[in-house]
Design a protein around this nucleic acid. Structure first.
Lengths: 181, 181
DNA sequence: GGTAGATCTGACCGATCGGTCAGACGCTGA
DNA sequence: TCAGCGTCTGACCGATCGGTCAGATCTACC
C-alpha cells in the first residue's frame, strides 16, 4: 500500500465527482467512494477532514470560475451584460458539467454550507443579467428557464464534444433570452 | 387522537410533498414528515406501506397526466406535435409544480422505481417532439434545455399565479424551440 | 540498520435511517 | 355494556450513516 498521497487524493476527488453526479451528494456514502477507488473509508477521511470538506474541495474550481464570471458581468451594462452572462455561463457549465449538475440537483440543501453561501447571490445576479435587468415576470421566468436548463443539460449530454455543446447552448440561450445580435 | 383517516392521509401526502420539494426524497425522513403533521413515524407507515409507496401515491396524478400527454402527442406529427408537446408540458409543469421539481431533482435514482420505469421513455418522446423530430444535436440540446428549464423553473416560482407563469413559459419555450406560429 | 513521519486500515462509536409489532385508545353498532 | 374495528403510538430491530482512533505498514533520510 502507501501510494504517493497526491495520486490517491486526486483519485478520490474524481471518484467522488463521478458518484455525486450519479447518485447525488446525500445518496453517495464515503464507503461508495472508497470502494470505487479501492481503499478503505478511513482513507477517505484521512485525505479529507469530512464529507463536506470533500465536497467543498470538489466544487472549488467551479465556484472560483463562477465568481470570476460574476465580477466580469458587473463591469458591463444592458444588452452587453446579458451577452457576457450568457456566454460566460455556457462556458462554465460546459467546463464543469458534473459539478454544475450536482450543485443544481441538491441546491437547497447544499446552500446551507458556508462555502456556498454566496452562490445564491451570484445566481440572482446571473438571472438579472439574463433577463436584461428587466422586472417583467416573463423576462425573469425566461432567465430562470435558461439558467436551469443549461445547468441540467450539461450534466446529461456527456457524449457531445465540448465545442459543439457550447455552440448549441449559446444558440438556444440567445433565442430564449432574445439577445440582440 | 384517532382523527378520520382520510384527513390524516391527505395531510401526510401534502406534508410529504412540501418536504420532498425542499429537502429531496432521500433528504427527507419519515420522522420529518410525521413531525410536520404532528403524529408519530409509525402512523406514516400505517397509512402508507413504505416510503416508496408514499412517493408513488404522491406522484401518481402527475404521472397520469404525463402519460395522457404522451398519448396525445402520438396522434400528431411535425410542427403540430411540437406545439402540442410544448403546450401540454407547460400545463403539466404548472399544475404539478412541486411533483415535477422533485422528479427532476432526483431523476437518476428514482427512475429505478418500477412505477416510474417508463418515465424515461416518455421523456425521450417529449424531447423528440420538442426538437421537431430532428436528429441534429443542436435541436436535441435545445429540447433538453427547454424540458429541464421548465421543470426546474416551476418548482421555484411559487409566487407567480398559474396563468401568468403558463403564458411566460409558453413564450420562452416557443422562442427556444423556434416553434412556427 | 534504525528511526521518524507519512499513509493506510480494521474495529469501533453514537446517531439516524426505514420498517415491524404488540398493544393502547376511541368510536360504533348490537 | 361490551365486543369489534379502525386509528394511532412507543419500543424496538437490523442496517447504514459520518466520523474517531490506535496501530500496522511503507518510505525517506541519517
Amino acid at each position: 500500500m502507501a501510494r504517493p498521497a497526491p495520486a490517491t487524493h486526486h483519485e478520490l476527488l474524481t471518484a467522488a465527482a463521478r458518484r455525486f453526479a450519479v447518485t447525488g451528494y446525500k445518496g453517495t456514502s464515503l464507503q461508495d467512494i472508497a470502494r470505487e477507488v479501492g481503499c478503505s473509508k478511513a482513507t477517505v477521511l484521512y485525505h479529507f477532514a469530512s464529507k463536506d470538506a470533500l465536497l467543498c474541495e470538489l466544487m472549488a474550481p467551479a465556484i472560483t470560475m463562477l465568481e470570476e464570471l460574476d465580477a466580469r458581468i458587473a463591469t458591463h451594462t444592458g444588452a452587453q451584460a446579458q451577452r457576457v452572462a450568457a456566454d460566460g455561463f455556457v462556458d462554465l457549465a460546459v467546463r464543469f458539467r458534473r459539478e454544475i449538475a450536482l450543485l443544481r440537483g441538491e441546491f437547497p440543501d447544499l446552500l446551507q454550507q458556508p462555502a456556498f453561501a454566496h452562490i445564491q447571490e451570484i445566481s440572482e445576479h446571473l438571472i438579472a443579467a439574463f433577463s436584461g435587468f428587466s422586472d417583467r415576470p416573463e423576462a425573469r421566468v425566461a432567465a430562470l428557464v435558461v439558467l436551469a436548463g443549461i445547468a441540467e443539460t450539461c450534466g446529461e449530454f456527456l457524449d457531445i464534444p465540448d465545442d459543439q455543446l457550447r455552440t448549441a447552448l449559446r444558440a438556444v440561450a440567445y433565442r430564449a433570452l432574445e439577445v440582440s445580435t
